[in-house]
Design a protein around this nucleic acid. Sequence first.
DNA 1: GTCCAGGGTGAAA
DNA 2: TTTCACCCTGGA
Length: 348
Amino acid sequence: MTLAERDGAPTGQQDAVRHFVLQTEALDLESTLDGGQAFRWWRVSGDGESAVYDGVIGSTALRISELGDALDPQAGTPAQDVALRQAQDGGHVDIKVEVRSELVPEGLEHAVADYLGIGPGPKTSISELRVRFADDPCIGPAITGFPGLRLLRQDPWECLVSFICSSTSNIPRIKLNVGSVAREIGSRVGLGDADYCFPAPKAVAAAGEQKLRDLGLGFRAKYVIPAAEAVASGKLDLAALRETPFYEARAALVGLTGVGEKIADCVMAFSLDKAEAFPVDRHIRRALERWYGLPEGTNNSNAAEFARERFGNFGAVAQQYMFHRERLSQRAKWGGDHVGHALPEDRL
DNA sequence: GTCCAGGGTGAAA
DNA sequence: TTTCACCCTGGA
């Protein structure tokens, strides 16, 4: 029996707008939602089909899909065609957003656009990135091949827990852990198996370390609880860190047990508007050594400074392109030192 | 079935 | 500065 059957169908009256379309510059859902920035999006379309993802933003379960461009209402456009059109002129794309929750909150459209990094809030100019790093040996080809990779603007608390969970882990497992926390401690907001809002810090703190261990977080459980307590008590004001200068915000995050510079930079890049954040992990280090002559043996902290010097306020988005490229080349899709096609045939 | 690596961090040496 | 334990899941 599925959860949906157990809970029954919603009583929903035909209420407000249950779907809308956001038009934006190139936005590739797969690389953006499922590329290691966020861990609660699930693809519901098949390989080769146009991307469709289910997930939750705030308290609203959503289905987000690529419609191609504005003049082509045809559904089921192959992903390559969409990417190609986007690549050709950096043209616009229509993103369809369907509400799967019973309630449609005020300002949802704004909230979704904000989350996707296409709202009026702080953002890095994609077109400027394209111009400035077109000839960059590593990310230049990635920018061309994946013009739609964007930085998300997530909820800082969920982002913080997600990356605490990332320690010595891998993406499938992080998704499992974060999903379990939501399902077991959060509230149901839709009929799908993963339709739970991410629990507030207070609720996580109340659940306790053993609960998180039971959910499979392992040693990370003992880091999540004090973080939850710090945020719940107001000792750490995550929202305020959006307005806090970079190094000051980083110091506040690193003050949490289990949060080093790498995790702090992830939280800052993907939820706190810190465009100069540059998370360095083993993959990124390898890329920095290979493409930019970072001396071997440089520690991660200095490697991040090295990158910040080079990329400045494009650090966060540059790092995502670098990570994306490294991930793909690991899967032997893009071959080692050279990028065969601007648009790989199979980008799974 | 076993083995191994996986978007690190903190504490001890 | 370097080494090591920490948990455990998915894939080979």
